[in-house]
């Protein structure tokens, strides 16, 4: 009798726990269903805003978020995974492209960069998307910490040329930070490689006439 009673108790506890998990999961599904469209819209806005920091918004008039192509070049872009390239056009003229580049040799792991390059191979802007560099030393690569990253704007593969694409300590044209050379060295190297990649693949980058093909595919999966 007593045994049956305690067995009963175990079952009640089990059911209460299962019910809690069920209610919790249900609530989370509801909150997720409510938030998802807002979050997607917010993220779209953020993406446009960050693209506009590397490509001036008045220079193009296409729907840049849906004019994309994928690239994959671990040697020059630093990532084993394919990444999206956003293409800016005015009318049918190609204007610029925004590439995601990874500098694998940061002081504390990889540094992710967004590099805007115009059709002539000149940099329109660079921003650090993600990094783990030492606060106070290496984080000067962030725009909100210093203007160092603006030094790239207007540069190209031939200006300052192969020898100039290094930090000053290595005999190049770009400043390093006091106490931090590795971080700027990694960023300068990655931006230079992005320029080389762009000059090698320019025709292919803008030639693929399937605007939005990749984005559409990923949306239908969702």
């Amino acid at each position: 009798m007593e045994k049956a009673e305690s067995k009963n108790q175990v079952f009640i506890s089990g059911w209460v726990l299962a019910l809690t998990a069920l209610v919790g999961t249900g609530l989370m599904a509801g909150v997720n269903w409510h938030s998802q469209p807002y979050i997607a819209e917010n993220e779209r806005q953020m993406l446009i805003r960050s693209l506009n920091t590397v490509i001036p918004p008045q220079s193009y008039d296409n729907d840049i978020l849906h004019d994309t192509t994928t690239v994959n070049d671990p040697g020059l872009l630093g990532s084993k995974q394919a990444s999206l390239v956003y293409r800016a056009r005015k009318g049918s003229e190609p204007i610029a492209a925004a590439l995601t580049v990874i500098a694998p040799n940061g002081y504390s792991g990889p540094i992710t960069l967004l590099v805007g390059i115009d059709y002539n191979g000149e940099i329109t802007g660079v921003r650090v998307v993600n990094h783990h560099e030492t606060p106070g030393l290496g984080d000067g690569i962030e725009k909100r910490r210093s203007n160092w990253i603006d030094a790239f704007t207007g540069k190209s593969a031939s200006n300052p040329g192969e020898a100039g694409w290094k930090v000053k300590r290595d005999g190049g044209n770009f400043d390093q930070f006091t106490g931090a050379t590795i971080t700027p060295r990694a960023v300068v190297g990655a931006v230079h490689k992005a320029l080389i990649f762009f000059s090698q693949n320019r025709a292919a980058l803008f030639g693929d006439d399937q605007p939005g093909a990749v984005v559409e595919k990923s949306m239908s999966v969702n």
Binding site: T20, A21, L27, M28, V31, H34, S35, Y38, I39
Partner: peptide, 19 residues
């Protein structure tokens, strides 16, 4: 379960309405 749900809900709602 309760704490995980509350934290998840806060994160989702904050991302949606106070981005």
């Amino acid at each position: 379960i309760i704490i995980a749900c509350v934290v998840t809900a806060i994160e989702l709602l904050m991302s949606a309405h106070f981005h």
